[in-house]
Amino acid sequence: MNISDIIKPENLVYEKSKLQLNTIMHYCPGCSNGVVHKLISEVLEELGLQERTIGVSPVGCGVFAYNYIDIDWQEAAHGRAPAVATGIVRTNPDKIVFTYQGDGDLASIGAAEILHACNRGENIVVVFINNGIYGMTGGQMAPTTLEGQVTSTTPFGRNIDLNGYPMKITELIAQLPGTSYVTRQSVQTAAAVRKCKNALRKAFQNVDQKKGTSFVEVVSTCNSGWKMSPVQANKWMEENMFPFYPLGDMKDSEKNAPVSKN
């Protein structure tokens, strides 16, 4: 059988989502952000939410997310995406609103905004990319940088005495009664990608059902910042990030008592 006999429309099993714009992303080769963008596009397309969704992009590597997914977008100030999303969803309760934030944006400068938005149970999806480093500004320490991890501002490794502890902010957020679904995922293998997509689908469905905040952390790589190849970075993440940031659901209102929200 020739390749040309296989490459026919009737045999198509996997293609780019129609919601992904034909712009080459600015991300470094092998960056996890691209996979997560793809999954959000696929989920919004499959759930038919394009016309109702408003995305809020952060400051950090995800700042240009608005160039890649064909929905209406707002670009927020550093860390303020949850407040921006609050303003949108409170005045437009019929809209599906999500923020897309990195670890510096969400866990450092925007720690107050994310905790209070989740505590109020704002009916939004939060997608949290945790790669333990500031990618956009050139690889500085993030709140989630592991102990001993080398970054440009911890050149001898993160020192707990000097820099404090790596922050498990998702565990903090899971404590808040306003959240209905809190999960930690990854996208380094096809199986992980499928699970992450299911988590994102559940998060967007929850918001469509007005269940309060759904929070999806994606433990990610920053191979440029970590100074590794993309394949090495995935391995390093599995060996070093996963033991400290274990994957899985922390809270799911379908299993526990449902969170009521207006």
């Binding site: 100030a77 407040a83 921006v84 609050t86 303003g87 949108i88 437009n92 107050a112 905004e113």
Partner: peptide, 10 residues
């Protein structure tokens, strides 16, 4: 800080 960013969003 949050108030003014809520204004931005809305």
């Amino acid at each position: 800080v949050a108030s003014i960013n809520m204004l931005y969003g809305a």
